[in-house]
Simulated scan of single mutants.
Amino acid sequence: MKFISTLIAVATLATAGTSYAADRQLHLRGEVTAASAGELTIVDRKGVKTTVQLPEKAQVLDVSRSSQAAIQENSFLGIAAAPASDGKIRATGVMIFPEAARGMNEGHYPWDNIEQGTMTNATVAKVIKKSSSTELEMRFGGRSQQVMLDKATIYGQFVPGDRKLLVVGAKVMVIGAEGADGKVHANAVLVGRDGFMPPL
Score class of each variant (00 low, 15 high):
Gly93Leu: 06
Ala14Arg: 15
Arg90Lys: 10
Ser132Trp: 14
Gln146Pro: 09
Val63Ser: 07
Lys49Tyr: 05
Asn121Pro: 07
Arg143Gln: 11
Ala35Ser: 07
Leu7His: 07
Glu56Pro: 02
Phe97Val: 06
Gly87Arg: 03
Leu77Tyr: 03
Gly161Glu: 06
Gly30Phe: 07
Val167Ala: 11
Glu31Tyr: 06
Lys49Ile: 00
Asn113Leu: 14
His185Lys: 01
Ala70Cys: 01
Pro55Val: 03
Ala21Arg: 15
Gly161Thr: 10
Pro160Lys: 05
Ala84His: 09
Asp44Gln: 01
Asp23Trp: 04
Ile89Asp: 05
Arg65Glu: 15
Thr33Gly: 07
Gln145Asp: 04
Gln72His: 08
Lys171Met: 09
Glu115Pro: 14
Ser132Val: 15
Tyr155Pro: 08
Glu99Ala: 09
Gly117Lys: 02
Lys151Ser: 13
Thr15Gly: 12
Ala177Arg: 07
Thr12Leu: 02
Met197Val: 15
Ser133Leu: 14
Arg24Glu: 14
Gly161Trp: 04
Gln25Gly: 15
Ile128Pro: 03
Val60Gln: 06
Ala101Asp: 03
Ala22Glu: 07
Ala37Pro: 01
Lys126Gln: 10
Ile79Trp: 03
Val168Arg: 02
Val174Trp: 08
Val60Leu: 01
Thr33Pro: 01
Asn113Ala: 13
Tyr20Gly: 05
Thr51Leu: 03
Val52Asn: 00
Ala14Glu: 13
Gln68Glu: 15
Leu166Glu: 02
Glu99Ser: 06
Gln116Ile: 05
Gln116Phe: 04
Gly141Trp: 04
Gly169Leu: 02
Arg193Leu: 12
Asn121Leu: 03
Val159Lys: 14
Met197Arg: 10
Ser36Val: 08
Leu13Phe: 13
Asn187His: 14
Ile79Thr: 06
Leu149Gln: 06
Gly141Phe: 04
Gly107Ala: 08
Gly78Met: 09
Lys49Asn: 00
Tyr155Asn: 08
Asp150Met: 09
Thr134Leu: 06
Ser67Cys: 09
Met95Pro: 10
Gln59Leu: 12
Ala69His: 14
Ala188Met: 09
Pro198Val: 09
Gly78Asn: 11
Thr153Phe: 01
Pro160Ser: 06
Ala80Glu: 02
Glu178Val: 15
Ala80Lys: 01
Lys151Asn: 11
Lys46His: 12
Val124Phe: 03
Ala100Tyr: 04
Ala170Val: 08
Asp162Asn: 12
Glu115Trp: 12
Met1Ala: 13
Met148Trp: 08
Phe140Pro: 04
Arg29Asp: 09
Ile42Asp: 06
Asp44Met: 02
Lys88Asp: 12
Arg45Ser: 11
Phe97Leu: 11
Val168His: 05
Ile175Thr: 10
Ile89Arg: 08
Glu99Trp: 07
Thr12Glu: 07
Arg163Gln: 02
Tyr155Trp: 07
Thr153Pro: 10
Met138Pro: 10
Leu200Val: 09
Ala16Pro: 07
Ala11Ile: 12
Ile8Phe: 12
His185Ser: 01
Asn105Ala: 11
Val10Ser: 12
Ser66Asn: 13
Glu106Trp: 01
Lys171His: 00
Phe158Cys: 04
Met173Leu: 15
Asp112Trp: 13
Ser144Leu: 11
Lys49Gln: 10
Ala35Arg: 00
Met173Val: 15
